[in-house]
Design a protein around this nucleic acid. Structure first.
Lengths: 247, 247
DNA sequence: AATGCGTCAATTGTCAGACAACGTAGTCGG
DNA sequence: CCGACTACGTTGTCTGACAATTGACGCATT
C-alpha cells in the first residue's frame, strides 16, 4: 500500500495545536522576562513553519503570557503559570486537589434516577421524557468535608464506568475520558450562599455558614446541555483564581 | 514632506488586532450556528490577507466563539456573547451595572494615605518608603448597599482626577482612561466569607452573612503591582459568570 | 563632553501564492 | 439498494518576500 504511512496517534489534531503545547512547556521552563528566540529561529527549531508558529503564539499572546513587540522581539511575561492553573480551564475537584498535593476522597455518595423538573426543561431544552440521573457527593480532605457537589445529566450521557458502579470520584473526569459526548465549554455562575440545612448537614457545618457556590452548565459543540452541576465549597481549602484581561 | 501621510489614530495597533475587533462585531451580529464565508472570501471582504485573518480568528477559536473544521468550514458557536460579558474581561462594577441596566451610586467614601504593611511589602514587592492611598467605598443600587470595595495603590498611580477630588465612582475606570501606567492583567482570587462587623456595618447586613469575596491584583506589563483590591459582594445583585474551556 | 541625526541590522507584521489534508455530496457501478 | 469512487470546496501548512518598527552605533554638530 503506497498511501499507508506511519502516523503517530498525536497526528490527529492540527499542527498548530500541538505546537502550542510544545510552546506552553517552553514558556513554563524559562524565566519570566526572558526573550524568546526570533520567530524564524524558533520555527526552525520546532520543525514548523513560521506561519504555524505564529498561530500558536497568538494564543499565548491573548492570554497575556507573552508580549510581542515589532522590531524588538517576544518576551515571556511574569506569572505565566497561573493561567493554566486558574479557573479558566475546566477541571474536576479531584484533579485540582491532586495538583495542589491534597488527598481527597468521596463520601455520602447518592445516585438516583428521576425526570426533569419544569425549570430544567425550560432552561436546558431537555426533552420532557428524558430520564435524568442525579449524583450527589461530598468531597473530603483529610477526613473533613470541604465540598458538596450535585451533578445532573441525562441518563444516556452517564459514563459507562459509573453505570457499572465504578464511580471513581469525578463525573467530569469520566466524561472527559470517553470520546462521546464531545465536551466543548462550561458556563459557570459564581456567587456566595448561606448553607442550607441539607448542605450544612453534609458538610458538617452550621446552618448559615458562608459557602462559595458554583452553578455550571456543560455544553457540547452543538450547544446541547450535557451536564448541570451545583457546587458548594467551604472557604479556605481550595483557591480559585482567574486572570482577567484588560479590554 | 514626502514621507508624511495621512494616518488615522487607529493605525497604531497591529492590523490583526483591528481585524479581530471587526470580526467580533460580525460574530455578534450573526445568528449562532451559521457558517462564516470561507477564509479567502472573508479576507477579501475585510481587505486583509488570509494570514492576518487567520491570526485574528485564532483568538475567537480559543475563546470558543467559533469552531473551525478542516474540509467543512467555520461556524459561530452558541452563546458567544457571554465571553464578552463574563468575568474574564476586567471591568469596573460601575460598568457592569451599566451593562445590565442598574443604576448605582457611591457611598461611605473614604480616602486615606498610609504606608505599606509588612505583608504588602512582601507580597507586592513595593518599596518600603512608598506612600500608599487606600480608597474604600460602598456601592448602592436603588439605595441599598450591594458591594463594599477597598482599593490600595501607590500614590504615584492615583489618577489625577481622583487626586483633584473628582472621584467619579471607579478607580479602575480612571486608571484605564489614562495612558499611564499601562495596565496589563488582573489576577483575582475568588472565595466566600462571612461578613465581619466592619463590612456588615457598611453593607447594613448581619454580621456573619455570606458574601462573595474577590481579592484582585492589577499588574503592568512589566509585572509591577499597580493596584490591590478587596471586593465584598452581596449575593443576588450581580451575576458573575465565566466560560471554562475543556482542556 | 554632550547632543542630535542618520544609518544599519534585527525583529515582528503583512502579504501573496501554492499545495496538502480533510469532509461532503454527488456519481457511478455493482 | 448499497458501496466505492470522484470532484469540489474548505481549512491546514509551507515558502518566500517585503514593510514597519525599534534599538544600537557612528558621526557631525554644538
Amino acid at each position: 500500500m503506497s498511501r499507508m504511512e506511519i502516523r503517530e496517534e498525536t497526528k490527529r489534531r492540527p499542527l498548530y495545536q500541538r505546537t502550542a503545547e510544545t510552546l506552553s512547556e517552553i514558556l513554563e521552563s524559562v524565566e519570566p522576562g526572558t526573550y524568546l528566540p526570533s520567530e524564524p529561529k524558533l520555527a526552525r527549531s520546532l520543525g514548523v513553519s513560521r506561519a504555524t508558529l505564529r498561530e500558536a503564539m497568538r494564543i499565548f499572546e491573548r492570554r497575556g503570557m507573552i508580549v510581542r513587540r515589532q522590531g524588538v522581539g517576544t518576551y515571556v511575561t511574569q506569572l505565566p503559570h497561573v493561567i493554566d492553573t486558574g479557573i479558566e480551564t475546566l477541571e474536576s475537584i479531584e484533579r485540582l486537589a491532586d495538583r495542589i498535593g491534597l488527598k481527597v476522597e468521596t463520601g455520602d455518595l447518592e445516585i438516583c434516577k428521576r425526570t426533569a423538573t419544569e425549570e430544567e426543561l425550560k432552561r436546558f431544552r431537555w426533552e420532557r421524557s428524558l430520564p435524568l440521573v442525579e449524583i450527589s457527593r461530598v468531597i473530603l480532605a483529610e477526613g473533613r468535608p470541604v465540598a458538596f457537589l450535585i451533578d445532573i445529566l441525562p441518563e444516556k450521557y452517564v459514563p459507562v464506568d459509573i453505570k457499572a458502579g465504578e464511580f471513581r470520584g469525578s463525573v467530569l473526569d469520566s466524561l472527559l475520558q470517553q470520546d462521546e459526548p464531545e465536551l466543548w465549554q462550561c458556563l459557570t455562575d459564581i456567587t456566595a450562599v448561606s448553607a442550607s440545612p441539607e448542605v450544612a448537614r453534609h458538610l458538617k457545618i452550621q446552618r448559615g455558614d458562608a459557602l462559595l457556590f458554583f452553578e455550571a452548565r456543560l455544553y457540547s459543540k452543538e450547544g446541547e446541555v450535557i451536564e448541570h452541576t451545583y457546587s458548594y465549597f467551604l472557604p479556605g481549602t481550595f483557591r480559585f483564581h482567574i486572570n482577567r484581561r484588560v479590554p
